[in-house]
Write a protein that binds this DNA or RNA. Sequence first.
DNA 1: TTGACATGGTTGGTATTACCAACCATCATG
DNA 2: CATGATGGTTGGTAATACCAACCATGTCAA
Lengths: 151, 151
Amino acid sequence: MTTADDVMDVLVRTTFEVAGVLTRIAAEHDLSLTQLRLLGILRDRRARVTELAAYLGLDKSTLSGLIDRAQRRGLLARGKNPQDGRVVEVYMTPAGLELAERVEDDIRRALAPAVGRLDQEQFGPLVSLLDVVATRSPRTPAAPEEPTATR
Amino acid sequence: MTTADDVMDVLVRTTFEVAGVLTRIAAEHDLSLTQLRLLGILRDRRARVTELAAYLGLDKSTLSGLIDRAQRRGLLARGKNPQDGRVVEVYMTPAGLELAERVEDDIRRALAPAVGRLDQEQFGPLVSLLDVVATRSPRTPAAPEEPTATR
DNA sequence: TTGACATGGTTGGTATTACCAACCATCATG
DNA sequence: CATGATGGTTGGTAATACCAACCATGTCAA
């Protein structure tokens, strides 16, 4: 019988496995895992600092440094928000977008052997199962403390 | 149609989600994610420094510091190997084992809502699918394999 | 209108993580 | 027994991340 504990074990194992791959590929491009996520987020849309901090579960001050260094490298830029003078909006530069694309290619290449061990008809089931697990239900009235993984 | 890219996307998303949970719970016990993994490995068996470095994909010198701090906290200890005087064997103290147990409980509690969104009959399929993905084929002598972080 | 408070970011300080290079001690081999 | 390989530690540096304190800007009530 497969228990919830078994599911957790394999989830944790997979997490370390995938995180290891991501860390390695990121390092090859002189990026940390956090910077990788940052680029991943900003790839799709510009975002304000607090928003990024909430999303990543990090302190605002951590973001300041992260953005500083990425900006110094020319990967992203800070812009003003005309509606609210306090807000700093962060967005990718063309160089950042280009790097993100290269990194994504490398990640897909690195994950290919692992995913390739599955039969193609297993893709669908795995995706729907993991999607259930990974998607936080928005309706969790149980714990008023801790809405997300922030502190 | 579900593609390999879709699988990768959900894998990465799940990884960040689970890693976030692990990081949060670890932090609640004043542990980093790396220390968590370290305790997870040493829970089952004692190991030498180089071995740990290989498992974790870290430099030996990083392990030195990691072990130093955990030792200072009374979580683990260094022992000698009678066969080889150069070797340092690391093992958990009772306090370390106890902490590892508490942390595991908290992790299981924290992952329960996510896993609980699955039906019980989906446990088996998910575990076997993820096991395929997370288990490096022995044909690839790239890096040493990863034991489960908890338990 | 103007205080008072709230919000958004940055700065400064500290601890940890992680790397590399250099090093010492111990083994293994010619 | 000299030489080299292996196992760990030390020292130096950069990045990550926290907290507390701090400005600047917005908001709201008296």
